[in-house]
């Protein structure tokens, strides 16, 4: 780990002012400290933001506003979130371990970096995400955990978060503040696809700080499920995950389905094609399967991850059917 200077500001203004070009904000540290140990992140200055007043969960404009420094475990266990947005609790609880969820913050979870082997270990020379222009070792390497949707020639990494998959389906809004003031970023625009600049994961600008995550009111959000498919039963990253939230009318017809996928792309993947095909339909396995197939029609698999294409379709079916069996 490179030497760094350390500050622990008490206000957001101080925190923003402390930020310089080689600085990093640290919240829970579960990802940043790990990356610093690996030598992937080498900040010269570390700004501990844990004393900032961003730790509350409050009702907000009919929905909920979650402070960026609320721990993942506190958010998952919060009665308001469990009752209104159980899919968020489920997604958070599906990730990592209780120890890590106790440390990890809501804001930090959004900024997790990929678990691609070739990114995480700087002794691999090829990684456009770590060092632009060096290539992508994963394309020709071992790519079982890699992307099948939205990848580019430059990068086939996936976003590792479970929580963000649920937030995507919930159409959350990320509130940020920075040297140039406050702004709101719709969740779907928060994370990026890799394109030619995979080194940039999100549309957060340098020096900006996440302050809150707002979740809009969704009356039917209890009719939802989070399905995580992984190599072991706990404490493992998703091969594929699905957040599904269904708005059904009294006759069982879908007014709207919200479906987001994890483990398949550089960002939480909102399955808009499938959502479009399902709108106005009665939910049954065949219909959902057709929608899932349409969503994955443009999937591009690599040598070791072609199973994800079929797995993603089956997972969508399982999750949507399961959500449909719940009460709103």
């Amino acid at each position: 780990m490179r030497q760094f200077t350390y500050t622990c500001p008490k206000t957001i203004e101080e925190a923003l002012k402390a930020h310089t070009s080689e600085a990093a904000f640290i919240g829970g540290g579960t990802n940043l400290v790990d990356l610093m140990k690996m030598g992937v992140e080498r900040p010269a200055r570390l700004i501990n933001i844990n004393r900032l007043p961003l730790t509350s969960i409050e009702e907000h404009e009919g929905g909920v506003r979650v402070g960026a420094l609320v721990s993942n475990s506190d958010a998952a266990a919060h009665a308001f979130i469990r009752e209104r947005y159980p899919v968020l609790s489920e997604a958070i609880l599906a990730g990592a371990s209780q120890q890590l969820r106790n440390m990890a913050t809501m804001g930090g979870n959004l900024l997790q970096r990929t678990r691609c082997y070739y990114f995480y270990d700087p002794s691999y020379k090829e990684c456009n995400k770590r060092t632009p222009g060096t290539g992508c070792a994963a394309k020709q390497g071992f790519n079982r955990i890699h992307a099948i949707l939205g990848a580019s020639e430059a990068c086939i990494a996936v976003h590792p978060s479970d929580m963000c998959v649920a937030l995507s389906a919930l159409d959350a809004v990320v509130q940020v503040t920075g040297p140039k003031g406050d702004r709101s970023i719709p969740f779907r625009e928060f994370h990026r696809l890799p394109g030619s600049m995979p080194q940039i994961d999100t549309n957060l600008r340098p020096g900006e700080l996440i302050t809150y995550i707002d979740i809009p009111p969704i009356t039917y959000a209890r009719r939802s499920t989070y399905l995580k498919v992984r190599d072991r039963n706990s404490y493992a990253f998703a091969l594929v995950s699905v957040a599904a939230i269904l708005d059904l009318d009294s006759g069982g017809t879908l007014r709207q389905a919200r479906i987001a996928l994890g483990g398949v792309a550089h960002k939480p993947w909102r399955a808009t094609k499938a959502e479009g095909l399902l709108a106005g339909k009665k939910v049954n396995e065949r219909i959902v399967r057709e929608a899932a197939e349409a969503e994955l029609a443009n999937a591009k698999a690599y040598r070791h991850n072609s199973f994800k294409v079929e797995l993603a379709q089956r997972s969508i079916v399982r999750a949507v059917i399961a959500a449909g069996e719940k009460n709103a």
Binding site: G141, F142, D231, R232, N233
Partner: peptide, 25 residues
């Protein structure tokens, strides 16, 4: 231990990706 045969390296050389059973397994 997953092998990248091109490089001759085991890519999952950590306990997050080299899976041994957890209590839940």
């Amino acid at each position: 231990a997953h092998t990248d045969y091109r490089l001759g390296r085991w890519v999952n050389n950590n306990l997050a990706e080299y899976h041994v059973p957890t209590n839940a397994d």
